[in-house]
Structure formats: structure tokens, C-alpha cells
Nucleic acid binder design. Sequence first.
DNA 1: GCTGCAATAGTGAGCGCTAACATTTTTTCG
DNA 2: CGAAAAAATGTTAGCGCTCACTATTGCAGC
Lengths: 342, 342
Amino acid sequence: MPEPTLKDVAALAGVSPRTVSNVVNGYVHVAAATRAKVEAAIQELDYRPNILARNLASGRSGQIAVVIPYLDTPYFSELLQAIIPRARHRGFNVLIDQTDGDPAHEAELIRRRPRGFAYDGMIFSPLGLAQADLSQRDPDLPLVVLGERSSDGEFDHVGIDDVAAARDAVDHLISLGHRRIAAIGDQPYRTGEAAQRRTAGYRQAHEHAGLPVDDSLVIVTPRFNRVDGAEAMGHLLDREDPPTAVFAYSDLVALGAIRTILQRGLRVPEDVAVIGYDDIEDGRYNTPTVSTIAPDKAGIAAAAVDRLLERIDSGNDLPGKEIVCPYRLVPRESTVGPVTPD
Amino acid sequence: MPEPTLKDVAALAGVSPRTVSNVVNGYVHVAAATRAKVEAAIQELDYRPNILARNLASGRSGQIAVVIPYLDTPYFSELLQAIIPRARHRGFNVLIDQTDGDPAHEAELIRRRPRGFAYDGMIFSPLGLAQADLSQRDPDLPLVVLGERSSDGEFDHVGIDDVAAARDAVDHLISLGHRRIAAIGDQPYRTGEAAQRRTAGYRQAHEHAGLPVDDSLVIVTPRFNRVDGAEAMGHLLDREDPPTAVFAYSDLVALGAIRTILQRGLRVPEDVAVIGYDDIEDGRYNTPTVSTIAPDKAGIAAAAVDRLLERIDSGNDLPGKEIVCPYRLVPRESTVGPVTPD
DNA sequence: GCTGCAATAGTGAGCGCTAACATTTTTTCG
DNA sequence: CGAAAAAATGTTAGCGCTCACTATTGCAGC
């Protein structure tokens, strides 16, 4: 037997299809008695609306795309874990697309809706694309950009104040008495805007404290992962004048750096203090636990989803909006040492 | 201006909508000249088919759901990385659903297509559900089950021979001279079928070698992660007669165990040899690198996707099929020590 | 030259729902 | 108490595509 349709329900309940549709979609102006009648019919037939038909009729797919560089990088997977329930709650399903940071792929995704995919809007966390590349986008695609850049009002953007966060991280190290502080993760090239903001914060913290910046302590890494952190830390420790503290541009970098420090028989934080960025779960369970900048991931996810749906509802004719979410500095063992819990 | 439709293209090309549809969908019987004409019109109008309309007309969503317990567990994320391109290549988009192993959620997903989601079939990797629970499924949902169980011909199942794989892992340790071998990860309860298969392999290997099994060396853990591995290893090392080798039921467990061993000042593999299961990337880059059972993830992904699409195409009236994929034993440093590359 | 079968193209009926518009019933209030 | 506003429901035309069914053409075989 074929699936029951809305018409079947209407016939059984003795009302019009329109009324059934109203009930199914929670429209307000339905008399209680009518609603009960319709719901009984729905129960009896085990009716479920055909989503495909609804999509065509409404012109909506009920899906949003979330485009991130890496699915298995903790920061992104944790962010995704926050985005999905938020979207679900609002009646939208999430399509995930991983770009590997490939600039061509990223550019293509915002330039033109790919064939065979149905989504009503996109949350996009670019990696291989510079600020400027984002203007070449499909103006009809409702878009919210995540991450470290500013939108200049051209599009919606959700993120934290990275420069301030980086400055806070380095301030924390300075306040602990450190004077030779390395930075691991700079990317002084076109698409390294995120890294450059952290470097800017690093410099600001030094300036505020009246400390000189030793440029040789700012280490460039191609990515923000464990291996990069471990290698960079190795080079730093090979120097005659190694730093006493490290600001790592991600928790993964921090974890890699800590591992190298420990492998050399040195202690964290006694010999070298380390602070990371992102507040990923691995850092919270590491030995030592990793001090970090904790962006409000739930807040970012909620803001991004809500803004995107607002934009979709509006027919995509809203001006670009800059949404700045809070972050917290979370001191843990890797900077302040073991804390005895009460 | 509204999006161009198939009709617009047909008008411009001077053919019928049907012919345009044929061209778009790569139907064979289209004269080359006609095809060229239509393609030119498509180009000119920048036409893209409306997926929503196609879905309704064809009764297909072009999407499949992949249901896994955890998105950020390396084994699953790596498997997903293999499934997605395979499905894409075949013209299907992948919807990801994470269950956290929640039995109720898992049961619900296979019992009844949730409202608001469109997919034509499901690849399902159950965690909180026992074999028996799978029979309570929606018979109309094209389903392929992944992981460690057998289907008994009731549904399609793709996996490796876990009992044999576990046996091989333990054989490997035995062949290296180990006689006291622990197993970390047993789950002797209803939903622990996967773990129980590995324990069976562990026992078989002992039997074949004529070794007695010391049941106190079979450690139960609630999950297969680093923390569980680290804790279990701690208990084992606290014993008066610690094992000289460990078969960990996942690479994460192995990584946790290795960490505990190293923290105690012992060496791997000289003091304790460790072999894992899954062949995740973390294990390949760990120090020491982790010996493991490497399931053919690409093969599993391909088999699962292909079988599911076959089932969808057939209208879901295929008998259940058991697909067994190959695996490899990969000896690395954690059992055989450093290997000098040529 | 005629039949018959491929190859090629056209016609039109939906797919099951939404939503604009229309209609009827109920409520509000001077 | 009657007019107007609000609530409740009905009517119906699509949404843009696919696909079963038809109609036309080309050409081999006799």
C-alpha cells in the first residue's frame, strides 16, 4: 500500500487538505475540535508528510550547509556538535562539507551552488581563502562566515575578538613573570589572516607591558596541528636562549609543544609554560591540562545558526552584520601548575 | 529575475522539455546535434536543475544517512571520510547523524523515518543496540549495517572477520614470545557483542597455541577510548605479575595504555608490547607507532555505499547479504620495536 | 517501395504539498 | 442589534521536474 497523503488524511477527517496542512505545520488559527479530529486521522493512517513535496511547494529544502576545513580537527568537530542541535531545533538539517582548506574548492562552494545539493544557506569557515576572495561569492546564497576576520559589513560574520584574546593569553604569561615568550603558529602570507591576528595580539601584549618583541621567537607553521607544534618547540629548545613560555596558536599546537618539552626531560610549566587556543577536549584531559583561550563555541554556533535562518527568512536582503562572541581565558596546569581541588 | 527552468531551456533550444531532461540526465538516445543545441542553451541561461523538483518527481532525495555513534572518534571519522566521496561519486549526498551510542536514539532511527529528514537509505553503525534490536526496524528503509556482528541474512551487513582479526593480533604477540597477554576492552553484556568477538579471538589464539587463559587479564572497559586504556593499564601494572603484552580492543585504548606504561618509566615494547585495533592516524604518528589490526576502511566504505545504492535501486527487495572485507595485521614499533627504514 | 524496428523527440499527467485567494462562521463593539 | 473585523476553513493553481505513452523519423531487409 502506498504511503498515505495529506489528502487521505483530509478525507478521513472530513476537512480540507488546507486544514490538515495547518495542523501539521502548527498554524495557530485552527479550532481545537478540528485539530483533534485531524490528529486522530493522522494517527490512524500513520501519516507522515512527504518532505520532498513540501520542499518543492515551499521552495525550501530545510537544510543548511556547514563548510569547514577539517571534520576531524577537534575545534571544528566541537563547533559542529554545537551547530547541529541548534539547527535541528530550528527545524533544519545540517549538511557537512569538508574542504581540506583547498582554496579552489572553497571558492567554488560560495561562487555557485553545486549541482545536486539542496540547501537554503551556508555557514562557512574559510581556511584557504583570504578576506578578499569572499567578495566573489554568489550574492543569492544566504551566507554566514565564521572565524577570524572581519566582514567590513559585506556579509554576516560570527567570531571572537582574536586580537584581544591573543593579547589576553600573552598578558597571562607576562603576569606570571615570563619575559621571553615564543609564539608558535604565525602565517605571514595572504591566507594567514587568522594567524596574523594572533601575532598582532602577541605584539600588543608586549607593547602594553613595555617588553621588546624578539621576532625570532615568532615561529611560522604551515598548519595548526600537533606535529607543527612539536617541531617548532624542538627548534626553540635547540636555541641557546630558549623561551620560558609559549603562546601556541591552537591547543593542538600547544599539545605538540608540551610533548616535545616533556620528551626533553623538561617540566611544564616550571621550565616552559604553555598556553593554547580553542579549548578543545584533549587539552582538558591532557597531563598537564592545557591553559587556553576558550571561545564560546555554543554562543558562536547559536549566533551563526540564528543569523543564517533570519537571513533565509528575510529572503536574504539583510545588511551584513558583525557578531562578536565572548571568550574566556582559562588558566590550567600548563601555565600555573597543578591546582589542588578543594 | 527568477531562476531559469527546464522549460526555458527547452524554449530557447527549440526542443521539448523532455529532451532537455534527457540531456541533463545523460540519457543515451539524444542526437549529437540536439545535445549540443541544448547544452548551448543551458550555458546561455546558466541553467541548473531544481533539485527539489527533481526529488519530488523522481521520488528520490539523492541523500543517504550515515548513522555513527561518534563523529569525532578517529575510526568513525576516517570511515566517514571514505564513505562521503564514494557516495558523492555515485551522485548521493551524505547526511550524518551522531547517536552517542544512545540505544533509544538508535532504535528510533531505524524504526521510523524521522520527520523532516529526507534520505533514501541508511548506513548504520550501531553501538547501543544489540543484534536482536535490529530486527525491530522499518522494513521499508533500505539499510546497510556496519560493524561487528553478523546479519544472519536478515539485512545487509559489511564488516571484517573480527574474531579472526583478534586472533591474528594475539597470535602476533604469542609469536613474539609473549605468554602473559592482557586484553583490554571486554564488554560482557548485551550490547557488547563487538568486544565479545575480540575476546573470542583472544581465547582462540591462546587455545591454538596451547596456552591457558588467565581470565583476570581480560579487562572490562565501558568504552574504547584513551582514558579507559590508560586506567586499565594502570591496574594491570599494579599487579604483582603484570602482563608482558597487551591486546587493546581499539587504537585509542592502545594509545592510553602506552601512555601509562611510559609514564611508569617502562618501555614499549621492551617491557610491555601493545597491539591495537582500527589503524587510526594517531597510532601511525605516535611514539612509538602502534601495531594494529587495519580494517580495509576504503573497502568497507565502498562496499557499504555500493550495496546500499544497489538496494535502493532495486526497490529494497533484495535478500540480506553478508559482506566480509579484508583486514591486515600491521606490526609497528609498539610490538616489534623501532624499524630502521632502508 | 514497403514493412518493421531502432533511434529520437514530443505530450501531458502527475509527484504531494503550500499558499494565495475566496468563503463562511464567529467575535467584537459602538 | 448590525457592521466590520477576526477566525476558521475551503478551493485551487502551481512548484519544476520525471516518466509512461505517443509520434515521428531513418534505414535495413526483402
